[in-house]
Nucleic acid binder design. Structure first.
Lengths: 212, 212
DNA sequence: CCTACCGATCGGTAGG
DNA sequence: CCTACCGATCGGTAGG
């Protein structure tokens, strides 16, 4: 069994695990992801990760040079931005509004289905001071920016909103939805009273699309 | 000198440090805050915190039962929510729109002036699984909810937005501003192209206030 | 509040 | 990939 409940969808690190070494490496990525999102970078131990794939701690170093490199590989494979941008580009819809709404729905659903994705984002920013984000955005940004520039040209937005600003406010609104919902849920707030992605998007799209 | 660059403004933990023990305790809170925001909970060491106030590690235990209790005290004193809610309630303005806009401006300015405040939020959620957020919201929520309920009644919002949802979407939008700006800045994106609190609030207020 | 120290655990390595 | 182990560092305590 090489299948897992949390496979990286990213083309840059995912591959068919044909050889034994590849399968172990893939299993290590998954076990490391679980440990990092549950405990953060520093509290996750190489021993617990090794246990997760049934090898001894020393065996990890046949696949990754150290804990930092292992974390970097997990970030590249699982970081939420690697999920957000492809979903944004691929979202169906006849109008810009429909495409944005569908994309937001898909992204929010994915981020809420796996609590760890946001944890990975935060763990990287705090415990590693965001040092992997440069590489990540270099890989992901070009396509996202090309997409949003085209979309920006097709709609009427407030004049001070650049294409970059459109991408930023859209992603920010989706993250705000998922983040505030998780936070409020953890405080025991009544879930029915909370705003979800539909409400956030109603506000956002009404606020940013001035051509309707 | 008991003054510091990052004083807790919270009435629940701040006090005049008159006795020597009080001053040491206060200095410990500040030194611990610095370590926790820079390294996260687990990577911050009791030794470094003790060094920050010029005592030996054992001395900390005269003031706090352990690392967990010290972190809990830092969260109560410095957590961004303890800054956000009072600013929201105190913001000036003749209309609801003005009050929200002024509050957002003040909150964003404060959160951007001290990078650590967001780090504390994230460190708590990842490394401590949000276990302090219940206490925090019990303390802060009643006033905030009373305020927002009154404000909600005075404006025309989309029918599906509850008072709770208004509070959630407002705070979420402010956090989205600060978070996306920090993230994009760390990737080297050009700052002038980024949306700031004015742009986020233009979109948000236009989206949520339907009575204009 | 300090000195001196404890057991535990950590990331990583040598050698096979 | 395992066995066996290293030095380092950790949170915390006893006793004064």
């Amino acid at each position: 069994m090489t299948q897992s409940t949390s496979q990286p969808l990213n083309q840059y690190t995912s591959f068919d695990a044909t050889t034994k070494g590849d399968r172990t490496r893939q299993a290590l990525l998954e076990a490391a992801y679980e440990q990092f999102i549950q405990r953060g970078f520093h509290a996750a131990s190489m021993r617990a990760i090794a246990d997760g794939v049934g090898i001894t701690p020393g065996g990890i170093y046949n696949h990754f040079a150290g804990k930092d490199e292992l974390f970097a590989a997990v970030v590249l494979a699982y970081h939420p931005l690697t999920r957000i941008f492809p979903q944004l580009i691929a979202a169906p819809g006849d109008t810009a509004e429909e495409r944005l709404r569908n994309a937001a729905q898909a992204i929010a659903t994915e981020l809420e289905s796996d609590e760890g994705l946001l944890n990975l984002f935060f763990a990287e920013m705090i415990e590693c001071q965001g040092k992997h984000l440069g590489t990540l955005s270099e890989v992901l940004m070009p396509k996202a920016l090309a997409f949003i520039t085209e979309l920006h040209a097709s709609v009427e937005t407030p004049p001070e909103i650049t294409p970059f600003g459109l991408l930023q406010t859209f992603v920010g609104t989706v993250l705000a939805t998922v983040f505030t919902r998780r936070f409020l849920a953890s405080t025991g707030a009544p879930l029915p009273a909370l705003a979800g992605i539909e409400e956030f998007m109603d506000i956002y799209l009404h606020g940013i699309l001035r051509g309707d």
